[in-house]
Nucleic acid binder design. Structure first.
Lengths: 186, 186
DNA sequence: GTCTATACGTCGATAGAC
DNA sequence: GTCTATCGACGTATAGAC
């Protein structure tokens, strides 16, 4: 019983790693199955042993991320003060942005994925619930838009060259400070 | 001698407007010339009378934006204090994000365009110059990353539903406040 | 200037040998 | 499980009639 990811050539986990890298770099639409197969050292038909369609690969690649987001919200709901809930969500999103950066880019920006998930509506529902949790009742526009800027800006900020100089703890702290500033009440 | 944009069916300006809308919605790669031609009411071959390649269309679509960005920087350079330069750049970028939102999305997020412009290096050079102008000498990481979050977050913030309720002046003011918070020194 | 028709490559996906 | 070979659809781009 091996729960370890199998990174063997052509193994599922290696296919997913290759696909994620290419999706983040070139976009899903521009990433061909041929390209994934080449980089993974298998043939195009080899992919079809593991997956029936390209969309199945896309969803499997994003699965860990799509599970991680509701988990953050569930942890935040356990807190009793709004400030604590905000910090929990900010910290959780920052953690994801830093350590699953490729997936986060795809999730936030790829129009192919937007269309694929748009049919499900689950993503929008998660964000409505989570933002309501952070903003509380009757949020002012400034805070509302500050939150939108944070979630959208997290992609670019975590890719910034200045990030390279910082250790992991400082990265989290810096991004958290950005979020707090954007969400502070007047 | 008519300097007015020609919005006639199949005119260049209408082609560009259609292309921009589709690029922003679906991504450049996923937007076929067939799709542009259909929406513009011409045939695919009709496009090739105006443009030799798809890339030529892309660059022409983004031309106004690629000219507007250095113009913002030039205006900012005229100011004598750092605070004034920062406000000038923030205001200029906000103006662009609000009123050329489709183009701004494509410019900031489309990997096809990143590759196309990556060959030229001009975009990176503009941002290096502009961020240096805003950050001044020896910027601390917090400010540096705050700026990265602002520029990247501007796309999402200007698309937020809460924006719909606000008048134009309030939108600018709200986004400017976000930028000031992210760029303030400790 | 705009059309029809088409060349030629690559796409996602399938069939069948080994 | 992985391969070769191939399918039909669609991509960009071109040729030539009107």
């Amino acid at each position: 019983m091996s729960a370890m990811p199998q990174r063997r050539r052509g193994g599922r986990d290696q296919l997913l790693a290759v696909a994620l890298r290419l999706f983040a770099r070139d976009g899903i639409q521009a990433t061909s199955l041929q390209g994934i197969a080449d980089e993974a050292g298998v043939t195009k038909a080899g992919l079809y042993y593991h997956y029936k369609t390209k969309d199945e690969i896309v969803l499997d690649v994003l699965k860990p991320l799509l599970d991680a987001l509701p988990a953050v919200t569930r942890r935040a709901e356990a807190h009793r003060t709004r400030a604590a809930r905000v910090d929990e969500v900010l910290g959780g999103l920052i953690e994801i942005a830093l350590h699953e950066h490729s997936g986060f880019v795809v999730l936030m920006q790829d129009p192919y994925l937007t269309r694929l998930l748009g049919q499900q509506e689950s993503m929008r529902q998660w964000w409505d619930e989570t933002s309501a949790l952070m903003l509380g009742p009757d949020p002012d526009p400034q805070t509302r838009i500050g939150l939108a800027m944070f979630i959208s800006g997290l992609v670019g900020a975590s890719r910034d060259p200045a990030m390279a100089d910082l250790d992991d703890r400082t990265r989290r702290q810096t991004l958290l400070e950005c979020g707090r500033r954007l969400l502070q009440r007047d």
